[in-house]
Simulated assay, not measured.
Amino acid sequence: MAQLLDSRNLVIRGDNDSDPANFLWQSFDFPDNTLLTGMRLGKNLATGQEWYLKSWKSTIDHSPGNFRFELDVSGCPKLVIWNGSARYVNRAWNPSVLLQPKYCDVYPHCGEFGSCNNDSLCICLDGFQPKNIEAWSSLNFSEGCARKIPLNCNNKDDFKRQSNMKLPYTGSSSYNMSMKLEECKIKCPENCSCTAYASTTITKGVSGCLLWFSGLIDIKKQDQSGDVFYVRVGSDSVA
């Protein structure tokens, strides 16, 4: 039996099933170009089923277009807009914030260890310098930044606080919801591959430790509401 619910979800039930929550099939499992209340974004890790939005080619041609909007669950969950196979916009998951793409949101505008400001210009994080000075001066920021002083891979490395920032891309990160910031501060220096750490909030009132293990990308300077993370630098890089 087919039924259109008040939520606009088209469901199919068994004829003899009296439980209103049981569906043999539901349209909300196959989103199109509009996210309605009750729909899901993400991935069922047990079955592999994914829920994402896809654009139309045009208002006349409703076949799939180039853009896809999804919740990427690798590392720390994040909202992503894809333009074909290219990651176009990347933001940390926040169920109360809608995406409003700007130039700084284009992935990854400033390369590794570069931060984009509100003027869509890039600056290197403290302790870093442009990899290619000539390209950087020509406003080509794609090669990013490199450390001024190499890491020693020991407890003598420093961690520079970065305030009011959008957290870096978390695809190569890991998080532990049972660890607090002070434990995070101890854990990261123990691993030579750990490049940064932060305290992150996945759901309201629940925070944990987020660790990065590669070059930091997709960083943006924000207003007072931004996040804080700590990036690993050579000990002589910090004044």
Rank of each mutant, 00 (worst) to 15 (best):
M1A: 07
M1W: 01
S7C: 07
R8H: 12
R8I: 02
N9I: 06
L10W: 09
L10P: 07
V11W: 14
V11M: 13
G14E: 11
D19W: 12
L24Q: 15
W25F: 11
P31N: 13
P31G: 14
P31W: 11
D32Q: 13
D32M: 10
T34L: 15
T34C: 13
L35M: 13
T37C: 06
G38Y: 06
M39Y: 10
L41Y: 04
G42Q: 06
A46V: 12
G48N: 08
Q49G: 02
Y52F: 13
L53T: 01
K57E: 13
S58V: 03
S58H: 00
D61T: 07
H62I: 00
F69H: 08
E70W: 05
L71Y: 06
D72Q: 08
I81F: 04
I81G: 02
N83I: 01
S85R: 10
R87T: 08
K102D: 10
C104T: 14
V106E: 14
V106M: 15
P108Q: 12
G114W: 02
G114Y: 01
S115K: 10
N117G: 14
N118Y: 11
N118P: 01
C122A: 09
I123M: 06
G127V: 03
F128Q: 01
E134S: 11
E134D: 12
A135N: 03
W136R: 10
S138P: 00
L139F: 10
S142M: 03
S142C: 00
E143Y: 11
E143H: 11
G144E: 04
N152H: 09
N152Y: 03
K156T: 09
F159V: 02
F159Y: 15
K160C: 02
N164A: 07
N164Q: 11
N164S: 10
M165S: 06
K166M: 11
K166Y: 05
P168W: 03
P168L: 07
P168A: 07
Y169N: 13
Y175D: 05
Y175P: 07
N176D: 15
M177F: 09
M177C: 08
S178E: 08
S178T: 14
M179T: 00
M179L: 15
E182I: 08
E183L: 05
C184P: 02
P189R: 07
A196I: 01
Y197H: 10
A198C: 01
I202C: 08
K204F: 12
K204H: 10
G205W: 01
S207Q: 04
G208V: 05
C209I: 08
W212M: 00
W212P: 00
W212F: 12
F213K: 07
G215K: 09
L216Q: 05
L216M: 06
I217R: 13
D218E: 15
K220P: 02
K221P: 00
Q222T: 08
S225T: 14
V228D: 06
Y230G: 01
Y230K: 02
V231A: 11
R232K: 12
V233S: 05
G234F: 03
D236Q: 14
S237G: 07
V238S: 12
